[in-house]
């Protein structure tokens, strides 16, 4: 498996996906902090925690719009590498197990997404330090919260992964991934959000501790991920490679 992961990482070399995954969260935090500074008085007038405000301002953009789109882009790119010039049909003629190829690609995809979330965390830390936020660094806000968001994003990851790996035209997974991401903030404000996995990261990030079923995005997210990952594996192992 180590060998398969190394090979999958090698395939990503010179690909713009790692660059985007690195730069985009930093940009979002920059936006968030800029917004926060613009309305500094308003956001701190009642003695709110500056760290928390940085987190809040950054994650509204990041979690509701940027993250699901980035996840889609990451998953589509990882599959795109295989379909653009017949890589997959060649790679599968090598002595590799299909289950191994599937697992390695899924793991690498999820790791790049995790990397993306960690860059977001790091950007929050840097932002807080740069504007001299008072108090000790609240890791539960700037690290634990984003990691919770990551877990709540697992369904989005597996859905976009399965679409990308099974459909050789990238337009379809790209369209579905981004199309479903856009209305997620609206759906999150209705009680139907539980049926819409794209809202889970939003609930995890911004739902706070007030709403009922605070555990739901994580439990459902994890369960959906595991079920779809195994269903997709079966599919991938039986699939005729025609592209």
């Amino acid at each position: 498996m180590k060998k398969m992961l190394e090979v999958e990482l090698l395939k990503l070399k010179n690909s713009w996906v790692l660059l985007v995954a690195t730069l985009a969260p930093g940009f979002m935090v920059f936006q968030g902090v800029a917004n926060f500074l613009r309305y500094y008085e308003l956001f701190t007038s009642r003695g709110q925690n500056v760290w928390h405000q940085i987190y809040l301002q950054s994650s509204i953009f990041y979690v509701s719009a940027m993250l699901p789109v980035l996840i889609t882009l990451i998953m589509v790119s990882i599959a795109r590498i295989e379909y653009k010039s017949g890589g997959l049909r060649y790679f599968l003629t090598l002595p590799v197990k299909r289950s191994g190829v599937y697992a390695a690609k899924l793991i690498v995809g999820c790791m790049v997404c995790l990397f993306n979330v960690l860059v977001f965390s790091l950007s929050l830390l840097v932002a807080g330090k740069v504007i001299n936020a008072p108090g000790s660094i609240p890791y539960d806000i700037i690290l634990t919260k984003p990691l919770m968001v990551y877990i709540a994003s697992l369904p989005v990851m597996i859905i976009t992964f399965l679409l990308s790996i099974n459909i050789s035209q990238m337009g379809i997974p790209l369209g579905i991934g981004i199309g479903f991401a856009l209305p997620s903030l609206l759906v999150a404000n209705t009680r139907y959000w539980v049926f819409y996995p794209w809202t889970y990261p939003i609930m995890a990030a911004l739902g706070g501790d007030f709403f009922e079923k605070a555990y739901f995005p994580f439990a459902a997210g994890f369960l959906i991920f595991v079920l779809l990952a195994f269903a997709g594996l079966r599919w991938f192992m039986e699939k005729d490679v025609l592209d």
Binding site: V7, K13, I81, S85, R89, T93
Partner: peptide, 28 residues
């Protein structure tokens, strides 16, 4: 024990010739 070309040549365009071969070499 089998080397293959299936239809048009398959490769990873973002990689160099050596890197493409390196993928095959590592697997084998």
């Amino acid at each position: 024990r089998v080397g293959a070309i299936v239809e048009s040549p398959s490769y990873y365009g973002n990689l160099t010739a050596v890197e493409n071969l390196e993928i095959t070499r590592r697997i084998l």
